[in-house]
């Protein structure tokens, strides 16, 4: 069965097609081929969310997974953040949860907060 979907590697949004033999068409660059194969075999996503933070000017700190994680784990990964409360100061890149759900990928802070 052939798969058709939109490439999300960049904003260009190529319409990719992968046939049963894993031949990719519709891509504009090699990254599209890699994405297409991954999307058919083991799709992954970067997950972004927020966590509570104390002692900062705002009440929430934005976070993301440092790398894509399996698409099926998105919901679980976000739930794991419920138990986390950060305390300022926080630097962009600080690890919020290490090795999320055993994926080997960390949740990291995406904003710097001074202590207030």
């Amino acid at each position: 069965m052939a798969h058709e979907f939109i490439c999300t590697v960049c904003p260009r949004g190529c319409h990719l097609r992968v046939d049963d033999d894993m031949n990719v068409t519709g891509n504009s660059c090699p990254r599209g081929v890699k994405y297409a194969i991954a999307e058919v075999t083991a799709p992954t996503r970067v997950v972004t969310s927020t966590v509570r933070i104390n002692g900062a000017a705002l009440r929430r700190c934005p976070v993301r997974t440092a790398a894509p994680i399996p698409k099926g784990l998105m919901g679980e990964a976000v739930k794991a953040l419920s138990d986390v409360t950060l305390t300022a100061p926080v630097e962009t890149g600080d690890v919020v949860i290490a090795d999320v759900l055993g994926t080997g990928v960390d949740f990291i802070a995406t904003k710097t907060f001074a202590k207030v």
């Binding site: 960049c10 904003p11 972004t48 000017a57 976070v63 993301r64 962009t92 995406t110 904003k111």
Partner: peptide, 30 residues
């Protein structure tokens, strides 16, 4: 604070062209 609307755009997808890597809004502003 500086950064404008990027501060609330916590999703990724920014900067592929400008920084050649995929950032979130706050990271891009940062």
């Amino acid at each position: 604070e500086l950064g404008g609307i990027l501060n609330q755009c916590i999703h990724n997808g920014f900067g592929l062209h400008y920084f050649k890597e995929e950032l979130t809004g706050p990271e891009y502003a940062g």
